[in-house]
């Protein structure tokens, strides 16, 4: 593989990592603070993509679509919290897995019922249509660079929010020791709702950003969800820093693996078999990485909970 192609794949990997981080950040906070497994976090990403696509089509502008999709995703997250999730906080993990699995079934199908099963195309906004010349003869889409920057900016903002503000301190304390925070007189339910809605919005944001890059289709959240879980488990549940590093690891591993593995397989197999086997092996790489990391560090790279 040429250096140029490698560079492109590495950028793609980083960008997948950033999107994963936006999804995983909410997931890990919800998990860390509320000890709540939310499988439906992936459909919130999907919903963001659909809302972004639909609103962009309705307003005729990607930017207006983005602007409206964020509060819509937030409100939707709140709605789900009030209707379903808050009744599950004191239940065991399996019950949470199941009920949120029900939410996935419903929303995947609802999206199909409303927008049809065929993928939606979201045009890249005109402002970012051009490419950037990485090196002579090699262009990289400006939109993807923008996604990378927006993701990094959000990550920095989030880091600031969690590490440097009072609210963030409560959230961090909640991730380490929820009963203590509650004993300090903080309205833990309100805090939960806030974290939850915020996480939903981040996932929705990732969905809107992903719209023009990946196809917007029912079930698109499922794959991302599983990868996001891999991210938070590798990173250590409840840790934003862990989620960021793990997201980049997962994004890079997945993307580079998918472009390198078929080439590697071609050394052993005929081309068509190499493509299929290589792709499947590449998909396995992140899970192998996760199993390997958990085998040596059963609580992830940066465990937030001390107890």
């Amino acid at each position: 593989m040429s250096t140029g192609l490698f560079l492109v794949q590495a950028l793609n990997g980083l960008q997948l990592g950033i999107l994963l981080f936006l999804v995983a950040a909410g997931l890990t906070l919800v998990f860390g603070v509320m000890d709540f497994i939310n499988l439906a976090h992936g459909v919130q990403y999907m919903l963001g993509a659909y809302l972004g696509a639909a609103l962009a089509a309705a307003t005729g502008s990607f930017w207006l679509g983005l602007l409206w999709a964020l509060p819509a995703a937030l409100i939707f997250g709140l709605l789900l919290e009030v209707l379903v999730f808050r009744h599950l906080y004191d239940r065991d993990h399996l019950s949470q897995v199941l009920a949120t699995f029900g939410v996935i079934l419903f929303l995947n199908q609802a999206v199909k019922a409303i927008w049809g099963a065929a993928p939606l195309q979201v045009p890249v906004p005109a402002l970012l249509e051009d490419g950037v010349v990485l090196m002579p003869g090699l262009q990289y889409p400006l939109y993807r660079i923008a996604v990378l920057c927006a993701g990094i900016a959000t990550a920095l903002g989030l880091w600031f929010l969690v590490e440097r503000t009072r609210l963030g301190m409560l959230v961090r304390a909640g991730a380490t020791n929820a009963p203590m925070v509650s004993a300090l007189g903080v309205d833990i339910r309100r805090l939960f709702m806030l974290v939850f809605a915020f996480g939903a919005m981040l996932a929705g944001f990732a969905g809107v950003l992903a719209g023009p890059i990946f196809s917007v289709e029912p079930g698109m959240g499922d794959h991302v969800l599983i990868l996001a879980f891999v991210v938070i488990v590798i990173g250590g549940i409840g840790s934003i820093r862990g989620a960021f590093i793990a997201a980049l690891i997962v994004g890079l591993t997945d993307t580079l693996g998918k472009s390198l593995m078929p080439d590697l397989m071609r050394l052993f197999l005929d081309p068509s078999a190499a493509r299929q086997t290589g792709a499947a092996l590449a998909s396995m790489l992140v899970y192998i990485a996760m199993a390997a990391i958990l085998a040596f560090r059963p609580r992830g790279l940066f465990p937030a909970r001390s107890g």
Binding site: V84, L88, R91, S95, L98, A99, F101, G102, V103, I104, L105, F106, L107, N108, Q109, A110, K112, A113
Partner: peptide, 14 residues
């Protein structure tokens, strides 16, 4: 669209 019934049934059951 039976999964739109099945999903909520699942939630209610839990």
């Amino acid at each position: 669209h039976w999964k739109m019934i099945f999903g909520p049934l699942l939630i209610l059951a839990v």
